Amino acid sequence: MEKMTLVEALDKKVLLQKRIHSRIRTTGFVEWHKHNELRTARKKQKVAEFEADARASYQSIMDLIAYYDKLNEAISKANAENKIETSIGEMSIAGVIARKDQLSRKVENMGILIDDDEINGNIDLEQTLARQLETQLAYALKKVNEQNQKNNTSAEMMRNSILGRENKGKEDSAVTSVVEAYLSENKAELIDPIGAEAQSKKLREENEKLLMELNVKLKIANATVEIEI
């Protein structure tokens, strides 16, 4: 029975992957030769030696794969069974890893539609909500500014139309009152009942804080939890 910490097991898993892939790439399993020659065509190795080496190498690789599978199973079992206390409650190590992966995926694109990663649960839900708040706020502010610019243009045209060409640019209190009333009645205003900017900032800050916490606690768990294979 072999005992090791999770961090040791994870390091060994990575090394095993590299070792197995290297052995698979560099090992000769199949060769050919002419019937009247006793050596292989490529490496000029005696046929009997090649056959023995191929069988031994194949078995060695299969043994490494079997050990890798046992190691991987032990890691998965430890991740499922061992719990970590976090600020959002008790979670299994596997749960912490999954949540950390979600938090680590950044939502960069700005758009109204929710993408496949978000629907499939690959993106943290709070990030999706923050992105949607930011997107809708930016869109609404853009429309408010555009509409008010149009209103200003229309108001200026209205002023000039009332005053006439000969009085263009002159001040007239009656005309000014009409124009100001028009601007007031048609003014575009933002409707933001939840305070989208502040809420989005809060969500992102909380997510960053949680991600840092989970990273630290996962490192501690990996260094202290032991597995046996």
Rank of each mutant, 00 (worst) to 15 (best):
A54T: 07
A41V: 11
Q59I: 12
D124S: 00
S57C: 12
D115I: 02
L214R: 10
A138C: 02
R165A: 13
A52P: 04
K34F: 15
D69H: 09
A138N: 09
L214W: 10
D63R: 14
S161N: 09
E31W: 11
L211S: 11
K219F: 02
Y182A: 05
L103W: 01
K150C: 10
V47S: 05
E118W: 00
A140S: 09
T27S: 13
H21Q: 11
R105A: 12
E37F: 08
A155I: 07
K83E: 15
A48I: 04
E171Q: 15
D116H: 05
L183S: 10
E51L: 15
E166C: 04
G169W: 08
I84P: 01
I220M: 14
Q102Y: 01
E146V: 09
V179W: 04
E37R: 10
N152E: 13
Q136K: 12
A188R: 07
V144P: 02
I114M: 06
K143T: 11
A198D: 03
E171L: 14
I191A: 05
A140E: 11
R204C: 01
Y182T: 07
D101L: 09
S161P: 08
R39H: 15
N151K: 04
R55V: 13
A56G: 07
A48D: 12
K34L: 13
E213N: 04
L113Q: 10
A66H: 07
Q59F: 13
D115P: 00
L6Y: 00
I20T: 03
A196F: 11
K150T: 06
A52H: 05
K70Y: 03
